[in-house]
Design a protein around this nucleic acid. Structure first.
Lengths: 198, 198
DNA sequence: GTCTATAGGAAGATAGAC
DNA sequence: GTCTATCTTCCTATAGAC
């Protein structure tokens, strides 16, 4: 195997770990399977990371960054408010449908972090970043469209984050794509009502 | 140790497993720790259950039954529609705050089931039962209060189940109880709007 | 920095006495 | 039906050659 600087190897191993965990689940993913996924031998993992926990910490921060980006990209300002909400949710939902295993992985990592002593702050940070992403989007919309809200920004941001989370998890468990069209319509109508000032 | 019929031992071991898993998390709970929690020796576990998987299957069906009962008890018809929704959610929320570990366990078991070959139907069944509980409640309310709905019953039931799920998970991760009052107000207002026909 | 080989421990499951 | 003792397997992590 080619010799690489440790920082680059760490990045490769982190991405390999994400692929392995999305495929096999967190508890079944071993340092051996990560090494195999990355195409290196087992001891390279322990050379680049002090422990498996340290690698998982890298996985959590990396994948959280990925998904905050996804949310921000999906739900960005468009022509009208209705378009922003509707097209934004469609974009996000398309991502969930295209990468269900990776979305499921974010839930598994949350629970891993909550159960691992010392890792609780990583789980909280993950969910705070989701809420912050929504907060930024709401503030952008307020400025660009001059909206007035029926509820405070932090309340709306947390509500949107929680609702997105619940809808995503329910879809991942139940599948059954056709059943969700009506639910998404209800949700988008509700959100439009919360931010509209008619 | 006293000799008990297998059926009774199975019930004891299932409850012991729920306690151990709520305390330690699913992946860290071993057949040894379950045996210790139940106060029996390791081989009793393997005498009563063919495998650890079979025991976990019993845990999933048992705890799902518990929680469907919780939801049905909490959100039962009361004097007025507003009372039903508001008091119902408060009752449910009180249960989450009183037993966070057990609620977290339901999420862990869902993911365990989705990752374990052959167990996917158990996860789907878990979430279908939640939706069915809401469906029954909505039908009760329709009959006892003569409501007309703005959205079809299955859509409303799934939406309520998903929203409850997301709010619960976000609370379990973030804690911070004071921040949720405004969110619950927003939610209850939305639900009342969906079922009202003013 | 990467490899092979192995130490050391803990898990699920079984054997056989009582 | 329950126990103690053990088998087998697989894990994380390390040692030491290259």
């Amino acid at each position: 195997m080619a010799r690489l600087p440790s920082a680059e190897r760490r990045r490769q191993l982190t991405e390999a770990a994400i692929r392995a965990m999305a495929r096999d689940g967190v508890p079944r993913t071993t340092t051996r399977s990560i090494a195999a996924e990355a195409g290196v031998s087992l001891s390279v993992v322990h050379y680049c990371f002090d422990s498996k926990q340290q690698l998982i910490e890298s996985v959590i921060t990396t994948i959280t960054g990925h998904y905050v980006t996804v949310v921000k990209e999906a739900i960005r300002p468009r022509n009208t408010l209705e378009d922003t909400v509707r097209v934004g949710f469609q974009a996000y939902w398309g991502h969930v449908r295209a990468h269900p295993d990776e979305h499921m992985l974010t839930y598994e990592l949350t629970q891993y972090a909550l159960r691992q002593p010392g890792f609780e702050p990583l789980a909280r940070r993950q969910y705070e970043l989701y809420a912050e992403a929504y907060t930024e989007l709401i503030d952008q919309l307020r400025q660009s469209m001059g909206l007035r809200l029926r509820v405070p920004v932090p309340v709306l941001a947390r509500y949107l984050a929680a609702m997105t989370d619940g809808l995503t998890l329910n879809f991942l468990v139940l599948g059954d794509e056709s059943a969700w069209a009506g639910i998404l319509d209800t949700v988008t109508a509700h959100i439009a009502g919360l931010v509209h000032d008619d």
